[in-house]
C-alpha cells in the first residue's frame, strides 16, 4: 500500500467540523472545571469544615490515581443503571469537568500561595471579610497568578476530549474513525487528525509558555 494523501485532503472538511466540536467541548469543560475548582478552593481555604476537606482530599487522590478513561466509563455506564439518563454528551462533559477540576484545584493552590500574606492582613485590617475578601481581593490575584498553568491545563483538557470518542461523542477523533471505517484508509485519515490535534495543542502550549515567561519577567 502507498500513502495516498488525497484521502487526507478529502477528509479535511469533516475533520474541521470535528475539530470545532472538540474545541467547543474542551472550552465548556475547562470553564466548568474552573468554576467547580474555584468553589472547592473556597471550601478548602475559607472554611473550617474538616469533613469536607477530607472528602476533597479523597476526591483529588482518586481522580489523580485512576485513569480518566475509567472515570468516563464509570459515569457513562453507571448513570443509566442508577436511573440517571444523561446521555453520552452530558456524561462526557461531567467526566472531563470532574477530572480537570481535581488538577485545577492544585493549580489554584499554587496561585494562592503566590498571593502575599500581607494581602490578607491588609484586607482584614480594612474590615473586609468573607465574600468581599475572597471575591474582590484574593481570588482575582489567585487567578492572575494561575493563568499560565491554567492555559497549560487547557491543553490537557483538549487532549482528554479525544477519549470521549469511546462513548460515542462525535468529536474530532470519532469523526476520523467514522471516515476511515468507511474508506478503509486509517493511516491517511488519522495522520490528518493527528496533525490537527498537534496544531491546536502546540499553539495553546506555546501560548502558555510565553505567558509564563512574560509573567516571570514582570515579577523580576
Amino acid at each position: 500500500m502507498k500513502f495516498d494523501i488525497s484521502y487526507t485532503f478529502d477528509a479535511l472538511p469533516r475533520l474541521f467540523e470535528g475539530a470545532l466540536v472538540t474545541l467547543q467541548i474542551s472550552l465548556l469543560g475547562i470553564a466548568l472545571s474552573l468554576c467547580l475548582a474555584t468553589g472547592l478552593t473556597l471550601v478548602r481555604e475559607a472554611t473550617g469544615w474538616t469533613w469536607a476537606h477530607r472528602m476533597l482530599a479523597v476526591y483529588i487522590s482518586f481522580i489523580r490515581g485512576t485513569p480518566l478513561l475509567v472515570q468516563i466509563f464509570l459515569i457513562f455506564y453507571v448513570s443509566p443503571v442508577i436511573g440517571l439518563d444523561i446521555g453520552p454528551f452530558l456524561a462526557g462533559i461531567l467526566a472531563i469537568t470532574l477530572n480537570s477540576a481535581a488538577f485545577v484545584v492544585e493549580i489554584l493552590r499554587g496561585g494562592l500561595a503566590s498571593v502575599p500574606k500581607g494581602q490578607f492582613e491588609a484586607a482584614r485590617a480594612l474590615g473586609l471579610n468573607g465574600w468581599v475578601l475572597w471575591g474582590k481581593v484574593i481570588l482575582p490575584q489567585t487567578f492572575i497568578a494561575s493563568v499560565p498553568a491554567l492555559v497549560n491545563e487547557y491543553t490537557q483538557v483538549l487532549k482528554a476530549t479525544a477519549l470521549l470518542s469511546t462513548i460515542t461523542i462525535v468529536e474530532l477523533m470519532r469523526v476520523s474513525q467514522q471516515i476511515y471505517t468507511r474508506n478503509y484508509h486509517p493511516v491517511e485519515v488519522l495522520t490528518g487528525t493527528f496533525l490537527m490535534y498537534f496544531v491546536m495543542c502546540f499553539a495553546v502550549s506555546r501560548a502558555a509558555a510565553q505567558l509564563e515567561t512574560r509573567m516571570k519577567r514582570r515579577q523580576a
Binding site: 500500500m1 500513502f3 491543553t155 487532549k159 482528554a160 476530549t161 479525544a162 477519549l163 470518542s165 469511546t166 477523533m173 474513525q177 486509517p186 493511516v187 488519522l190 495522520t191 487528525t193 493527528f194 490535534y197 498537534f198 495543542c201 502546540f202 502550549s205
Partner: peptide
C-alpha cells in the same frame, strides 16, 4: 518530543496500530 506531548495518546495509539502493518 513536541509531537508526542502535543497530541492525545489515544490517537498516537491508533496511528501506530495502523501505521505499522501499513
Amino acid at each position: 518530543i513536541e509531537v508526542f506531548r502535543n497530541t492525545p495518546f489515544i490517537i498516537q495509539v491508533f496511528l501506530i496500530y495502523y501505521v505499522l502493518p501499513f
